[in-house]
């Protein structure tokens, strides 16, 4: 049986094994990039915080949409961080890096990033619906505002709805995370791989490192929850830190197979 074109493309790359502590190394490397070139990162963080604030202002009484949008943000975040990946790459290569580098990364070169972004947005929308259904069905009282969510779900004396909500989010996010953990930097840096090839490479990286990558997913979720819990102010630092760190993760998780040994 012939391999599909996507699988053939994916096999141009290997999936090295990383250590359980590697997510910490990626965070340190991300922090270093952020400190070396802080302004673009802060602007990315400010844009995310501003967008979140606008959502809270516009739809304060529709928590089903607000809650889903905030948590679904994690699914589309790899696309949002595209500019930060470009900055980390430039810093690694010793090239000048600044806001212009991040803006240039957004100039459309081909349709692959658009297709991948749309797929992630579709997954995010699915999560908004699932999240709303779970809360509507199991919350003991109506949840219309963030204050209702805090009172009825998070601070509830009995039940495990908050934990179940996050666990379900994790279960549904797992395949999306597995598809995207290295895909965007790969699509950005290589012209010889399509969307499906990048997704397959991403899955192979997860298969090679299930425990470190589950830890990495939890670290991303933990930092993002922290950023949201600080009335979005923490996003100023969390977005650039995770964005730069994700680029370093992608570099550690994908290696190029030497020509002739595929």
């Amino acid at each position: 049986m012939h391999d599909s074109a996507a699988l053939t493309e994916s096999r141009h790359f290997n999936a090295p094994q990383v250590r359980l502590s590697s997510p910490l190394d990626w965070l340190v490397a991300g922090c270093r990039d952020f400190l070396r070139c802080p302004w673009p990162g802060l602007l990315h963080g400010a844009a995310v915080a501003l967008f979140g604030s606008l959502l809270c202002w516009q739809i304060p009484d529709r928590f089903w949409l607000l809650g889903g949008a905030f948590t679904g943000f994690m699914l589309v975040a790899p696309v949002i961080a595209t500019g930060l990946y470009a900055i980390s790459r430039a810093l690694e290569r010793g090239e000048p890096a600044g806001l212009g580098t991040a803006v240039a990364a957004w100039k459309p070169r081909d349709h692959r990033m658009v297709v991948f972004g749309l797929l992630l947005a579709l997954a995010g929308t699915g999560w908004v619906m699932t999240s709303a259904a779970l809360i509507w069905t199991f919350a003991p009282a109506p949840v219309n505002t963030p204050a209702d969510f805090l009172r009825v779900v998070v601070l509830a004396e009995h039940g495990w709805l908050f934990e179940a909500w996050l666990a379900l989010g994790g279960l549904l996010a797992a395949p999306v995370f597995a598809s995207s953990v290295v895909a965007i930097p790969l699509l950005q840096e290589r012209d010889d791989i399509g969307v499906l090839g990048a997704v397959l490479t991403s899955w192979r990286a997860v298969m090679a490192n299930p425990v470190p990558l589950a830890l990495w997913g939890a670290v991303i979720a933990g930092f993002t929850l922290f950023g949201m819990a600080t009335a979005l102010l923490g996003m100023l630092v969390v977005v650039p830190l995770l964005g730069h760190a994700s680029w370093h993760a992608s570099q550690a998780l994908v290696g190029r197979v030497p020509d002739g040994s595929e």
Binding site: V154, L155, F162, E163, A164, W165, L166, A167, L168, G169, G170, L171, A173, A174, P175, F177, A178, W203, V206, M207, A208, P210, V211, L213, A214, L215, G217, A218, A221, G222, L225, A229
Partner: peptide
């Protein structure tokens, strides 16, 4: 391997919710 990843991520986030709560 993928099941391990899903179990650890899903239940790990649930556990994180318990701590966050």
């Amino acid at each position: 391997r993928f099941g391990t990843f899903v179990i650890l991520l899903g239940l790990g986030l649930g556990m994180m919710g318990f701590v966050a709560k």
